[in-house]
Amino acid sequence: MISKEEILHVAELANLKLKDDEVDSFVSQLGKIVNMEDKLASVDTTGIEPTYNMGDTSTTFREDKGIHTQTREQMFENVPESEDNLIKVPTIVAKGEDE
């Protein structure tokens, strides 16, 4: 089971806002999925190393040298709002918050 409070907390962590009916359906759907995932508890994993990465996981090194790929103009092609060659976003620090 997963509670309504947990769903709202996880949504907050994930930067998602759920409508009331979405919260209800997530409580039921994610509850069922998490119940399914709970079956993992029955597997004895004592002393078993977790597999987080696949393939040859040796670290790759390369020369510390800058390379030119895209231009500034290209990088700006997809920017939704810009001004003076900068990406425009709404207020980051509200008035009073920085004091």
Partner: peptide, 12 residues
């Protein structure tokens, strides 16, 4: 209970 556990069962 979930992420690490699943990664261990993946190893098995």
């Amino acid at each position: 209970a979930y992420f690490k556990k699943a990664a261990q069962v993946r190893t098995i």
